[in-house]
Design a protein around this nucleic acid. Sequence first.
DNA 1: GTCTAGTTTTGAGTTATTCAAAACACCACT
DNA 2: AGTGGTGTTTTGAATAACTCAAAACTAGAC
Lengths: 167, 167
Amino acid sequence: MTPTRNDAPPVDPLATSIRDAGLKVTAPRVAVLTALADMPHVDADTVFRAVRETLPGTSLQAVYGVLGALTGVGLVRRFDPAGSPALFERRVGDNHHHLVCSHCGTIRDVDCVIGAAPCLTPVDTAGFRIHTAEVTFWGLCAECAADPRNSSDPIDSTTHTHSEETP
Amino acid sequence: MTPTRNDAPPVDPLATSIRDAGLKVTAPRVAVLTALADMPHVDADTVFRAVRETLPGTSLQAVYGVLGALTGVGLVRRFDPAGSPALFERRVGDNHHHLVCSHCGTIRDVDCVIGAAPCLTPVDTAGFRIHTAEVTFWGLCAECAADPRNSSDPIDSTTHTHSEETP
DNA sequence: GTCTAGTTTTGAGTTATTCAAAACACCACT
DNA sequence: AGTGGTGTTTTGAATAACTCAAAACTAGAC
C-alpha cells in the first residue's frame, strides 16, 4: 500500500493508442477497442452488442464508423471471409493469416512465416504493385472433423453458419 | 469440304459438361456458362445482364441458382474479394490465385506454383483438416500505379469501385 | 471558457443475396 | 412419340450487412 497523493492521471494505453494514431479519444472508440480485446474475431453486430453493455445508447452506425476509423489507422484489422460478415480483430501488424472452418465457421489465427506483408509474391505480378498477400485456409476444425457426420463434408461455401444441425 | 450426310447430332461441349456433372441441361445453365466463357471475373448481376441478351426472361434468381449449382458441382469457381460482390469464373481445377487492384478493382489471375489445393500449409494447423489455401494479392494494377494521383494510395479496402474520380 | 473540426446519433436507403410456393421443362421410361 | 416425376425456374417477397446524410454533440486546441 502506498497511500500517497495520486496526481498522476492514469494512463490508459487504449486511449493513448487512439490518440497516437491521430484520432480523438471518445467513449465509443475505447469501448470498441476494449470489446475487441476480449474477442478475437467478431463481426460489427457482435461488437455492437458488447459495447452496449458498457456504453448503452451507442448506435450500430457508430460502431461501424469506429471500426472503419480504427481500421483506417491500422489499430484494427478487418477480414472478410466468404459467406460471413466482415470480422474485426486487434491483432495487427504481423500479417498473420486465418484458418476458417468451412463447417462451423470457427476462425483461428496462424502465424505468417515471413511476418511482413506481402509474405508471398506471385511468379507473374502482371505489373501490379503488390502490397499484401492475404491467405485464408479453409478446412474442417478439429471438432467438426471429429464428427463422423462431417467426414465427407464438401467445400460448401454457403454453410458458414455456426449452427449445429439436428439429424 | 465433305458434303456428306450429317446425322451425328452436334455435340455441345457445354451441355456435355453440365450433364456429366450430374445436372440437367437447361437453357439458363448453358447461357450462364457461355457468358462466363467471355468474361473472366464477373458478379451475378453482370452474368444476369449478359444472359438476358441471348435468353430474355431469365430471372436474376435463376442466375443465382444456376451459379450456385454450377459452383456446387465444380464447373464454376466463386471468389469473394472484400468489398465486392461475389465473382464467378470458369477457370477451375487449377487452384489459381487472384491479384486485385485496391484502387480500381481490376482482377487478374495468377498461376499457382503448386497447382493442387492446398498449395500452402500453415506451420501450425491447429488441428484443422485443411483442403484449400486461398491466396489473394492486393495492390495497384499497372494502370492505377502509373497514375500519379494514386502514388500514395493506401490500403483502402472500402474503395473497390471501378470509378474514375474527377479532381 | 470558447470555438471548431471531427464524431456520433437519428433516420432512412441500398445492395447483394436468400427464401418459398407455384409453374414449368428435362429426360428416363413406356 | 407420349407421359410422369423430379429437378429447375419464375414470381414475389424478405433479409442481412452495410452506407449515406443531416443534425446534435464533444474532445481538445486556443
